Simulated scan of single mutants.
Amino acid sequence: MRLNHLDFHVPDIAATADFFIRHFGLRLKDMRGNNGLAILEDDAGLEIVLSHAIAKFGTADQVELQRQTYHIGFILPERADVDRVHAGLVADGVAFSGPPAAMRGGWLFYCTAPGNILVEVGWRPG
């Protein structure tokens, strides 16, 4: 079994898609409607779906809730890659919980993507 996709409810689909495309190399597979739904894909075929919150489920997203109820993580092949991604995010004015640091046997940091999505970026020795 393989994880196929994740679906995140965000208020600004285009801004969130742009963040993951520019900083994490995801590709835009499909954009439906005018900022209505985006499907992003990584090199392994995992899809991240960005959509608006659904009315029948209360229309809440993490921006409206004003809290981060989950996070997603990216693992990079080299420790230097973590520092490189961090530098690119710093240049774009992204919010961080702190700089890259040694944590849980690896080198990582946390930042916030548009849509109030907490993102972990790390490297762990093989």
Rank of each mutant, 00 (worst) to 15 (best):
M1Y: 15
R2S: 02
L3E: 03
N4T: 04
N4C: 09
L6G: 05
F8L: 15
H9V: 03
V10W: 00
D12G: 02
A14E: 13
A15N: 14
A15Y: 04
A15L: 04
A15S: 10
A17G: 05
F20W: 10
I21C: 04
I21Q: 00
R22H: 12
R22Q: 07
R22F: 11
R22S: 08
H23D: 02
F24P: 03
G25R: 01
L26S: 00
L28Y: 02
K29N: 05
M31E: 12
R32T: 13
R32Q: 12
R32A: 10
G33V: 02
G33R: 00
N34K: 06
N34C: 00
N35K: 07
G36S: 07
L37M: 14
I39Q: 02
L40I: 02
D42G: 04
D42I: 01
D42R: 01
D43C: 05
A44I: 06
L46W: 01
V49Q: 10
V49E: 12
L50T: 05
H52R: 06
A53K: 09
A55Q: 03
K56H: 11
G58S: 08
T59V: 00
A60D: 09
A60H: 13
D61L: 09
D61F: 12
Q62R: 09
V63S: 13
V63E: 15
V63D: 15
E64V: 11
E64P: 02
E64W: 12
E64N: 06
L65M: 13
Q66P: 01
Q66T: 10
Q68G: 12
Q68W: 11
Q68N: 11
G73E: 08
I75F: 15
P77M: 14
P77S: 14
E78F: 13
R79F: 14
D81S: 06
V82Q: 03
V82D: 05
V82I: 13
D83N: 07
V85A: 08
H86W: 08
L89C: 07
L89S: 11
V90D: 00
D92K: 01
D92R: 00
D92L: 01
V94A: 04
A95M: 12
A95Y: 14
A95W: 14
F96T: 02
S97D: 12
S97F: 09
S97P: 00
S97T: 08
G98Y: 01
G98R: 09
P99A: 05
A101H: 11
A101I: 12
A102E: 15
M103G: 04
M103T: 07
M103S: 05
M103K: 10
R104K: 09
G105W: 05
G105D: 06
G106V: 00
W107L: 00
W107A: 01
Y110R: 08
T112F: 13
P114G: 01
P114M: 10
G115N: 06
G115T: 10
N116R: 13
I117R: 04
E120P: 06
V121G: 04
V121T: 14
V121A: 10
R124T: 07
P125C: 05
P125H: 14
P125I: 12
